[in-house]
């Protein structure tokens, strides 16, 4: 995709991972403390969270959470500001996969979208606190500032038609004389 031009190291290997995912359904990541490129998640957890986020904000004519790197935002924050949510994610992600296996016999990330939606709806009913946590974090990672690891290539801001920052005030581009 032309709008996934990598600009940071992290994005470089994630883009590589995305390319791999497109072809072979696995996010492969190089480098990083865990040996898998993630700060907090295991590769399997990352795959599950990535898939959850994609259901929360699916791709349509605009990129969804997967293309916007929302799981990257959550992983970074879990190692920083969201340390207190680490236990909830460890338990919660395992719970999502458990529900998926029980209902459909596969891990969440391997399910087709409609089964993922069913599984997520069940998770929302059973462990609402965890679902709301991921929901909020997914929204932050998708609609928030790219500097925090999500909203890659300002995907959501482009979607909303927001003149892209950085800007020095509207006067500078609304004034026809300046243009």
């Amino acid at each position: 995709m032309p709008n996934q031009k990598p600009s940071l190291k992290r994005r470089t290997f994630l883009s590589a991972g995305l390319a791999a995912a497109a072809g072979g359904a696995a996010i492969s990541c190089g480098g990083g403390g865990t040996g898998e490129g993630w700060r907090f998640f295991t590769a399997e957890e990352a795959r599950t969270v990535d898939a959850i986020c994609e259901r929360i904000i699916p791709a349509d004519r605009d990129p969804g959470a997967h293309a916007a790197g929302v799981v990257n935002y959550i992983d970074i924050q879990l190692a920083k500001r969201f340390k207190k949510h680490q236990a909830a994610y460890r338990k919660g992600v395992a719970g999502v996969d458990a529900v998926s296996r029980a209902r459909f016999g596969k891990r969440f990330a391997e399910l087709p979208p409609d089964q993922q939606t069913q599984a997520l709806t069940e998770v929302g009913a059973k462990s609402g606190a965890f679902f709301n946590l991921v929901l909020n974090h997914a929204m932050q990672g998708f609609y928030g500032d790219p500097r925090h690891g999500g909203n890659r290539n300002m995907a959501s801001w482009r979607m909303l038609g927001l003149p892209l920052p950085p800007v020095r005030g509207r006067q500078h581009y609304d004034d026809p004389k300046a243009g």
């Binding site: 259901r55 929360i56 904000i57 699916p58 349509d60 605009d62 969804g64 939606t117 929901l135 997914a138 929204m139 932050q140 609609y143 928030g144 959501s156 801001w157 979607m159 909303l160 927001l162």
Partner: peptide, 25 residues
Amino acid sequence: LPYQFLSAVPAGVPQWGPEHKNFVR
């Protein structure tokens, strides 16, 4: 800002999924 706008989404719109994204857009 886009993230702030999410709090304006009305109760009748699903909290997630394609309808939510479409509404925000």
